[in-house]
Design a protein around this nucleic acid. Structure first.
Length: 200
DNA sequence: GCGCGGATTCACT
DNA sequence: GTGAATCCGCGCT
C-alpha cells in the first residue's frame, strides 16, 4: 500500500526519519520498477537546524521545494557530481526534509546495476545518498514531484524494526553545522550491509 | 560578477 | 587513507 498523503504532514521530522526505516521506496521509469526498503535516513529539522539548507528561513530557488507541503521529493546536486534525494515533510511553510542515505534493494536490481555501471552486484549499489539516487534513476528533473505519483512513491509492506535493531547517531558530512552536527538525527538498521559505515 | 565550498564517491597508493 | 572530480548555489562586492 502506498503511504498516504497524511503520513508526510507530521511535524516531527526526527520521529518520521526513524519510522521510515523498513518502508519501501520505488521508482518506475520507462515502465521499469526499481526499489527496496529504506535502511538509513537523516532528519533535517527546518529553520533552526544549522545543517539544513533552509536554516534561518532561507528561501532560494533551490530550497523553496522544502517549504512546500510534505509529500514531495527534494532533489539537489552536491559537490557538482551527485544527486541527493530527500522526502519533504510537514505543512507548507515548514521546511522539514529527510535524506535517504541507504536502501536495501529488492526489485529491479539488474536495472539498478546498469545505472550504477556495475558488472557485479555489490552492497555499494545503494549505499550512500548519491548511490541511492543514481540507482533509482532520480535526478533534479523530478525535484518537487509528488510521492503519490506513478513515477516515485513509498509503500508500507509490514516490515518494521525494534528499537534494539535501530541506531541513532550524528549525521554525516555536516561538520559546518557547529553544535547541530552532534544531534542524533541519523537513523539506520544495525548490521545491514547496505548501510554506509559505521553500521553497528 | 566573483569566489568559496559542499547532506559524496571512486580510483589509487 | 588520500585526493581528484565537477557544478552551481549562495553571499558579498
Amino acid at each position: 500500500m502506498k503511504l498516504p498523503h497524511s503520513y508526510y504532514l507530521s511535524n516531527d521530522v526526527v520521529a518520521l526519519s526513524r519510522d521510515l526505516l523498513g518502508k519501501y521506496l520505488f521508482t518506475k521509469i520507462d515502465g521499469v520498477t526499481t526499489g527496496g526498503y529504506i535502511v538509513e535516513t537523516e532528519a533535517y529539522n527546518g529553520i533552526v537546524d544549522r545543517a539544513s539548507h533552509a536554516f534561518g528561513n532561507r528561501r532560494t530557488p533551490r530550497t523553496i521545494t522544502m517549504f512546500e507541503e510534505g509529500g514531495r521529493a527534494y532533489v539537489y546536486l552536491c559537490y557538482g557530481i551527485h544527486e541527493m534525494f530527500n522526502i519533504v515533510t510537514s505543512i507548507a511553510g515548514t521546511p522539514h526534509a529527510i535524506l535517504i542515505r541507504a536502501l536495501h534493494p529488492t526489485e529491479g536490481i539488474d536495472v539498478m546495476q546498469f545505472r550504477r555501471n556495475m558488472s557485479i552486484i555489490k552492497p555499494t549499489i545503494t549505499m550512500g545518498p548519491g548511490s541511492v539516487a543514481k540507482a533509482l534513476g532520480i535526478s533534479r528533473k523530478i525535484n518537487s514531484i509528488s510521492l503519490l505519483s506513478d513515477t516515485l512513491w513509498l509503500e508500507e509492506r509490514g516490515l518494521s524494526f525494534t528499537d534494539e535493531e535501530i541506531k541513532a547517531a550524528p549525521r554525516v558530512g555536516v561538520d559546518y553545522a557547529g553544535d547541530d552536527a552532534m544531534l542524533p538525527y541519523r537513523f539506520y538498521v544495525k548490521g545491514d550491509v547496505y548501510v554506509s559505515k559505521p553500521n553497528k
